[in-house]
């Protein structure tokens, strides 16, 4: 039996719904008879077309939050949206704000959150998949509480596909007054410069780890990424060490990437790194340690010194023009 109704929380950027939001709408469409969406920010009404195209019939517009951090006001609004909508499940993208909203809502409704979901099935009710131990095993779980099931779902768990539906009907659903919990305010936003394709959208991702030896050598990763028209990624070790900004991090606490080729240079392949890149179509690894776990997922593994192989690769690609 199909699930009656699923509500999807859609996150917006200036260019419309995030990729993960569209993936969740697509997944919800395959599971439920009716899909509805909720979103916030100044651009909700403008996104009704896209959101409808991906399958939602109704779009609850929580509105512009000004400078408030979204967690509290969006969770507050969702409490009434859920009771109006009657949806039995709420899908939330894994993101900074998504996790805040899920946590706030969970405590407000006194229901648990199922997080790090990478698959959804209708198995006599909604059932979830969660990778554990670096993605070597998959836990299947079910929400058994009363009320709405809250699911926080990782990026790239599904492939987004439009269904050609009409624009979603926009329904106002303003956030209630937040009281003391809602006093955290964004006073300034800083956007880091980026050139080339986005890390989580690029067909080629070249990542560097501690094996590069020094922050300066990360220039090789940028060069390779440029030559292959790809994006530059990193292990957490070198993000923590301050070699590159956090936005480059691939893994459990960073981005999930699924490029055509993932090239790992001097990365050991810790389980928390593997969960973020194991889904890549092809994996190439360069590591001087034959026993490095990264080789267990590599299609092509070069046991060698990044100081030799990487500059040689840059030269070889450059000479091809």
């Amino acid at each position: 039996m199909a699930i009656d109704k699923i509500l999807v929380l859609v996150e917006l950027t200036e260019s419309g719904p995030t990729a993960t939001s569209l993936e969740l709408l697509t997944a919800a469409r395959g599971l439920a008879t009716t899909v509805e969406a909720a979103s916030w920010g100044p651009g909700v009404a403008a996104a009704a077309g896209t959101i409808g195209e991906y399958g939602a019939t109704t779009l609850y517009d929580i509105g512009d939050l000004g400078g408030a951090l979204p967690g509290v006001p969006v969770a507050g609004a969702l409490v009434s949206v859920l009771s109006t909508s009657g949806a039995s499940a709420l899908l939330i993208p894994t993101s900074y704000d998504g996790r805040d909203i899920a946590g706030r809502l969970s405590a407000k409704l006194n229901v648990p959150v199922l997080t790090n979901v990478t698959g959804l099935n209708n198995d006599d009710g909604l059932s979830t998949e969660h990778p554990i131990f670096g993605g070597t095993q998959i836990v299947h779980a079910k929400f058994t509480g009363t009320g709405v099931g809250i699911y926080v779902i990782r990026a790239k768990s599904f492939t987004a596909e439009p269904a050609g539906g009409a624009a979603a009907a926009v329904v106002a659903a303003a956030a209630p007054a937040a009281g003391n919990t809602g006093t955290a305010t964004i006073v300034a936003r800083h956007v880091e410069e980026r050139s080339g394709p986005k890390l989580d959208e690029a067909a080629v991702v070249v990542s560097g780890g501690r094996g590069l030896g020094s922050a300066n050598n990360y220039a090789w990763i940028n060069d390779l990424a440029k030559l292959l028209n790809g994006a530059a990624g990193a292990s957490r070790a070198i993000v923590d060490a301050g070699w590159v900004p956090y936005s480059h991090q691939v893994g459990q606490t960073g981005k999930t990437v699924k490029p055509t080729v993932y090239l790992a240079c001097g990365i050991s392949g810790a389980t928390q790194h593997l969960v973020g890149m194991k889904g890549s179509k092809n994996i190439i690894a360069i590591n001087k340690d034959q026993e490095a776990p990264i080789f267990s997922v590599a299609d092509l593994g070069i046991v060698g010194d990044v100081n030799k192989v990487v500059p040689a690769l840059i030269e070889a690609l450059k000479s091809r023009g």
Binding site: T136, Q137, H140, A141, K142, V303
Partner: peptide, 23 residues
């Protein structure tokens, strides 16, 4: 109080082993 239950745990599909060569 957890309101969730684990129904099963299965092995993930393993990646086919690749070609590992010494440089």
């Amino acid at each position: 109080g957890s309101g969730q239950t684990i129904t099963k745990v299965v092995d993930a599909e393993a990646r086919a082993s690749g070609e590992i060569v010494v440089d």
